[in-house]
Design a protein around this nucleic acid. Structure first.
Lengths: 251, 251
DNA sequence: CGTCCCTTTGATTTACTTCAAGCTCTGTGG
DNA sequence: CCACAGAGCTTGAAGTAAATCAAAGGGACG
């Protein structure tokens, strides 16, 4: 996992690295014709570099662009009160940031880099103009975002009635799956997220996150070293993740 | 709360009861011009009656229509396994059902009536054709659904790290607000939802839901009689709902 | 080298689930 | 009309998962 962007990959000949990331983000790797890709390439910015803790955009800023993650990891936080901010998303390579702002006119959250990251900017106005001419692209984009929303919804509802064990397993599997779909190892990855951030995403304390990871480790389900994760028993993790409810009711 | 639909209301002269409900659902009561309303009226079906436990549509059925709730209450459930189904939404008068299917091609959940309900069907193809000609309507529809999605997201993330007390307060306030926005009493309403269903929506057991309601009642925050709710102290409920975390960390 | 942040580990407390029993409604068939 | 079944709701007692509080160890970075 040294380089996230892959040149000349994705079935579109001659696609630049940044284009490849955008295609991924927009279409979940379902191919577009070369001509369509070429048109898309024209409106994609060259990769933008964000240092650790740099802010991609602030909550309430006017919406004008989507961003495709090329490398690195970002987090999204929404301030709901003066006192409370919610960590509502992590963004990994291949993810499309900003979809939740479409229709709102403003970004509903602040997005910042957890480590050095590169993203490609997609000016939304130009993207929309493009989808007018390319109905296939429009459909793919809509399908991708709808599916993502639905999945997130389901996961959040599942988490609500689950133990810390199941929540964390669920989370790790989502991350694993995300890496997998983008062509990286589903079992060995670096996740540059503090225990505290994982905790606030899952509604747990950092201590519980740490302890649960330790438990997993002692059960040989995975190995953790700081923020390096190696999943050893995906099958068992899935079983844990989908174990209904807090404890098993007996019939 | 005997009649939910209001005739000749909403600033659009001569709007039928069903049209009024759809306007509400589509535009959050922000007025459209009379001509626009008239066009919308043409594609809205007359109210459809659903008996208790009747299914509006099944999960996986092909998507073709949105539905605006005129009266009654419905619930939405998604089956994720053979073993597990999640209760992901309740639908009250003025809500627009089916938006989560846009872009997916299929309904991602089963929706059924909790009590006798009436809904208006909005064939999506005709609605889309209409929005081609009425950009204002398109924008309003998009804005309404985006806002709803964002709010749901935020609420779910809030619930994740809250106690049963806060979850229930949050839930009651959302319901109250929904009724309020549609012109009903925010403090006195019938919510024909079993404790069990509230529990699975909030990730709690029915016992906890019942006990928490009892606690509220003993604190004079509300009165419950079966499924009739009377909120007595909205301010305190809001305080409870937004009390961060499980317990208050002391600085 | 020392400071700060992140993480781990331990002890205690508490909120919620589980299990169980009884109670209130509603509808149904004798 | 009453008996009775069944679902929904309530209440109690016990157990457990996770939060809280506290303290100490490890890295990164100035």
């Amino acid at each position: 996992m040294t380089s996230h962007c892959k040149d000349g990959h994705g079935g579109v000949k001659g696609a630049s690295g940044s284009l490849w990331c955008c295609l991924n983000a927009l279409c979940s790797s379902q191919g577009l014709a070369s001509e369509e890709a070429a048109l898309l390439d024209e409106i994609v910015s060259s990769p933008l570099r964000l240092e650790k803790r740099a802010v991609l955009y602030e909550q309430e800023a006017p919406f004008d662009s989507l961003y495709a993650v090329c490398t690195g990891c970002l987090k999204q936080e929404t301030a709901v009160n003066e006192t409370e901010t919610l960590l509502t998303s992590f963004w990994l390579p291949g993810d499309l940031i900003g979809c939740d702002a479409i229709g709102l006119g403003r970004y509903p959250a602040t997005v910042s880099a957890l480590e050095t990251a590169t993203v490609c900017r997609l000016p939304f106005a130009r993207l929309e103009a493009l989808t007018q001419r390319l109905p296939r692209l429009r459909r793919q984009l809509q399908c991708t975002t709808s599916r993502a929303r639905h999945e997130e919804r389901i996961i959040l509802h599942q988490l609500l009635s689950r133990t810390a064990e199941a929540r964390l397993a669920c989370f790790l599997l989502v991350v694993s799956d995300c890496f997998h779909r983008r062509g990286y190892s589903p079992t060995h990855f670096r996740l540059p997220v503090s225990r505290n951030d994982i905790g606030s995403y899952l509604g747990l304390t950092q201590e519980t996150v740490g302890r649960t990871l330790a438990t997993y480790q002692s059960q040989r389900l995975l190995r953790v070293n700081g923020r390096e994760y190696q999943l050893l028993d995906l099958a068992q993790l899935e079983r844990l993740a989908s174990s209904t409810g807090r404890r098993q009711k007996r019939p």
